Amino acid sequence: MEQEAFDSEINIIKQVAVNNGYEGTMVDTLVKVTRRKLDRAGVSKMQTKEPKKFRRMAYTGGTSEALMNDVKKAGINPAPYTIGKLGRALTNHKLTPRHDAMSSGVYRLQCSSPGCNGEYISRTSRAAAERWKEHEDTKRRIDNVSATIQQITMDLEEIDRLMADDMLAPQRPLLGRKRGELKKVLEKKRRTLSSYQHQSAFAKQLVQEEHEFRSAEGARLIHREERFFRLVGLEALEIFLSEENPQVTTLNDKSERVSPLYKRFLEWKNKNDFSESAVT
């Protein structure tokens, strides 16, 4: 460990010791005793290491792996990343008020892309912040799997082009086996993508439209509620109100939409005492 990193670790340990009722000098004493033991054992006090060199490189399959091996020979460590048309899910640096973020109930998610009026209504019996994070995580997984599917598709097209080349006729059996392996991987990735899409209809819509979502800006708990049947009713009411609002686009899929009969009931309830202010 370098001296600067070592001193930083010691300061952290001192702070932990003080927080637990110990004297900070106790840590200094233990460090000195440990160093004396290491000196007697013939271990050097501190190792000075040359910082490693890293180079950010796009990972696109076999070609990039060969390139990364060449970079390693030059003494540079590659830092691979996958290519996707959509950005990574953005980290939430803002804190949502605890009484909302840690409560169960019905929530509204709004698209964070400029000019988009899309919104999604759902319910959760857990802390709302946990469910919001799951939507963000699911979007990131869909992005990554979609990028992988796109790359495999491009690889299959390249293999097909090579197999059509008469000059590469002796290599066709090898290319055929490689093509079969990629087809299996592609089918597996497609099943994984389908699974992720079922986990969050909101994330699925965002990916299809190439839009973004940041829970710090677009997530809001509109009803705090723990009772299940009241949760279901409030969710149906808010989906109904969202569909009736001409200023927004409801992103809930068809399986989450409200039936016509229930809509009539909700319309009547909305005109009476089932407003948002009455149940929040």
Rank of each mutant, 00 (worst) to 15 (best):
P246C: 00
V33S: 09
R36I: 11
R56Y: 02
P78V: 05
A74R: 12
E181H: 05
K178C: 05
T138G: 00
P78I: 05
E244F: 03
R227H: 13
T48M: 09
V145W: 03
R56M: 06
V185D: 07
A17R: 01
Q110H: 06
I83D: 08
W132F: 15
L162H: 04
R177F: 09
Q247S: 14
N144K: 15
Q3K: 11
Y107F: 11
K53N: 04
V33A: 14
H93Y: 12
R220P: 00
P80Y: 03
Q197L: 05
K204S: 15
A236L: 07
M163H: 00
S215N: 12
P114S: 05
S125H: 06
C116G: 05
A128H: 01
E244W: 02
D155C: 00
L182E: 05
V33N: 11
P97E: 02
A79D: 14
K45R: 15
K139M: 14
K85I: 11
E235Y: 02
L95F: 08
R56S: 09
E158C: 06
V185L: 08
E9S: 10
Q205M: 15
A58F: 02
S200K: 04
R190Q: 11
E210W: 10
M57N: 03
R264P: 05
T25H: 07
E136D: 14
I12W: 03
H211K: 04
A74C: 09
R172Y: 04
L156V: 03
K189F: 06
G87K: 15
Q247P: 02
T280R: 15
E238N: 06
K94E: 14
R230Y: 06
E238W: 01
E267V: 05
P114M: 02
K37S: 09
S146W: 06
R126I: 04
A236S: 14
Y22N: 07
N11H: 06
L95I: 14
P114H: 03
G24S: 12
L193A: 01
Q15Y: 04
T63R: 14
G218L: 03
M167T: 12
C116I: 10
G115C: 04
K45Q: 15
S146E: 12
T124C: 04
K184R: 09
E217R: 12
T29M: 07
S122T: 11
V18G: 00
A216D: 15
G176R: 07
R177I: 12
E209L: 13
D166L: 11
N77K: 10
Q3T: 08
D137A: 11
